[in-house]
């Protein structure tokens, strides 16, 4: 019963809330930064990650300096893990054979799918990355001090579909129950994206490319009202 609900109508509810919520959040951020200014923070030498370099360093020197002074330079391990984590978060479910077979059954088209053994290893790798973040948050005092409930919640949201999909694939515990849970957790994650800090998934692009500040990546000119 719960299975039929999770597999049918709730997929649509989750999907619609996800799209509507995302559009709302992006529009809201754009409205809050409607004003534009000619001044571009990102390019001024006395601000941002380039403040330590001199014009004499040359172009490549400025780029290595940029890298060295960014968090990729100061926290290389965490950045390495985060790149793997985010890549797998998208790629594994997108190119999973089971997901693609189901989509093909329902809509008559599907993407390319990788072999299931590979997805399985990548799921292990993803869960290891999630564990790394959990331990980091719990064990490092300076990270713990900045952590709130939501930080743990969004980590849970990201890892839960992987963990439950893993149990389903290996048919550990009652299969029906695990697969129902897997779908519900996937849907919960989708709904939660726009309303939690996972919204950085698209707000990142607005903030970094359109809004002007010392960490802008583009030449955005929007400023906070």
């Amino acid at each position: 019963m719960l299975y039929n609900l999770a597999q049918g109508p709730l997929v649509w509810v989750a999907f619609i809330l996800f799209v509507a919520g995302s559009v709302y959040q992006v529009t809201r951020l754009l409205a809050l930064t409607r004003k534009t200014e000619a001044h571009r923070w990102g390019r001024t030498p006395d601000a941002g990650p380039l403040s330590g370099t001199r014009p004499a360093d040359g172009l490549s020197g400025r780029w290595t300096a940029r890298l060295r002074l960014s968090i990729a330079g100061t926290q290389p391990l965490t950045i390495g893990v985060t790149v793997i984590f985010h890549t797998l978060l998208f790629l594994v479910p997108l190119f999973l054979l089971a997901h693609n077979i189901l989509v093909d059954e329902a809509w008559g088209f599907s993407l390319f799918a990788v072999r299931e053994k590979l997805s399985d290893y990548l799921t292990w790798l993803f869960l290891a990355c999630a564990l790394f973040f959990l331990l980091r948050r719990m064990l490092l005092a300076r990270v713990r001090a900045l952590s709130s409930f939501q930080d743990y919640y969004i980590l849970f949201l990201a890892a839960a579909p992987f963990a439950s999909g893993f149990l389903a694939y290996h048919q550990i515990f009652d299969y029906r129950m695990v697969i129902t849970l897997h779908m519900l957790l996937g849907e919960l994650m989708l709904v939660s994206i726009p309303f939690t800090r996972i919204a950085h998934m698209f707000l990142f692009f607005v903030l970094r490319f359109l809004v002007a500040h010392e960490y802008s990546l583009g030449s955005g000119r929007r400023v906070w009202r």
Binding site: A98, I101, A168, Y169, H170, Q171, Y175, R176, I179
Partner: peptide, 10 residues
């Protein structure tokens, strides 16, 4: 209807 109900591991 689901993978694991036809492709039983045990």
């Amino acid at each position: 209807l689901l993978c694991g109900e036809c492709h039983l591991r045990h």
